[in-house]
């Protein structure tokens, strides 16, 4: 009980922990909410590809501007992530390769290029470069106030646009052809949705890193789906699950020595998934068995 109390105390009054927790909660919330759409559109692994594809963008943004301002890096990452999705589409549309191969190609090659550039940067003489690999593995514990500000603004915009175009995104996800006949330009709505997902991923990279980002997109949404049959509840729950995992991860890794935040967040969210699959009413495994 005492330990619990001190955790809550720290959450409110320990400046570092509070900063980190706010950051991871926000990231978890955004990726959970937007991830719902990725999962419903059967694009779960696109998140994995986008997160890997972002790396060369981050490196290039740094090489061009010599700045590590979060905003600059996020813009670079988003553009690269975006380019990656476009290439995936181009490969699928013009060759006989399927989604899986196209996603794998972009993922591995962009990431390889990113690593190549990263090692070039690390060997550059002006040593302003440390910290880029924060995106690689995520360093939630190293989130600063200015990072949080950037994250908050981007997350706010992302969630705001999602709520604003709620009806249009629902149409896009459920029945885009029908939406087109209603007069909505579904391609543009699709583009908008894709941009939001890219933003959610790129922002999240700082906390959990490239490899684990796919879980942040897929897991909260998958867990949330089990509890509800309403899109709004699903998106809301996914956001809550993501945020919960974010805060829990931040707290656990701050109270236990030598445990990195990102992986703990992913473990938390995976536990939520397993729990949901087993115990959720109506859909859950136990419910269906008995």
């Amino acid at each position: 009980m005492l330990a619990m109390g001190s955790v809550i105390y720290n959450l409110f009054f320990d400046y570092t922990l509070r900063t980190v927790a706010i950051g991871t909660a926000t990231l978890g919330m955004v990726s959970g909410a937007l991830g719902s759409y990725a999962v419903l559109r059967k694009q779960s692994l696109l998140g994995d590809t986008i997160s890997h594809a972002a790396l060369p963008g981050i490196c290039l943004a740094f090489l061009l501007t010599n700045s590590k301002t979060p905003l600059v890096l996020i813009v670079g990452a988003s553009l690269a992530g975006w380019l990656g999705t476009i290439i995936v589409t181009a490969i699928v549309r013009n060759t006989r390769l399927k989604d899986d191969a196209a996603l794998g190609i972009v993922l591995a090659v962009f990431f390889g290029l990113g690593v190549f550039m990263l090692t070039l940067i690390q060997k550059m003489p002006n040593a302003n470069q440390s910290g880029l690999d924060k995106f690689l593995f995520g360093q939630a514990a190293a989130l600063l106030k200015r990072d949080i500000q950037t994250i908050a603004v981007i997350s706010g915009i992302t969630i705001g646009v999602m709520l604003l175009f709620w009806k249009e995104f629902k149409l896009l996800t459920f029945d885009p052809a029908f939406g087109e006949t209603l007069g909505f330009p579904m391609k543009i709505i699709d583009l908008l949705m894709m941009t939001l997902i890219v933003l959610a991923i790129v922002v999240g990279l700082q906390a959990v890193g490239v490899v684990l980002m796919s879980a942040m997109i897929v897991a909260p949404a998958t867990a949330a789906r089990q509890w509800t049959d309403h899109l709004s509840v699903m998106v809301g729950l996914a956001a809550i699950f993501g945020a919960t995992a974010g805060v829990t991860g931040a707290v656990i890794s701050s109270t236990t020595s030598g445990i990195p935040t990102g992986p703990v967040i992913v473990i938390c969210v995976s536990i939520i998934v397993v729990f949901s699959l087993v115990f959720a009413p109506k859909r859950g495994i136990i419910w269906r068995k008995y």
Binding site: V211, L212, S214, A215, A221, Q226, P263, I285
Partner: peptide, 24 residues
């Protein structure tokens, strides 16, 4: 309850995270 691609996207990060936690 989970589509195959979503399943892949959940399983390997979880196992990888576990490994990273154990290592660190």
């Amino acid at each position: 309850l989970v589509k195959e691609d979503a399943a892949i996207g959940i399983v390997f990060p979880a196992l990888f995270s576990l490994a990273v936690i154990l290592i660190t």
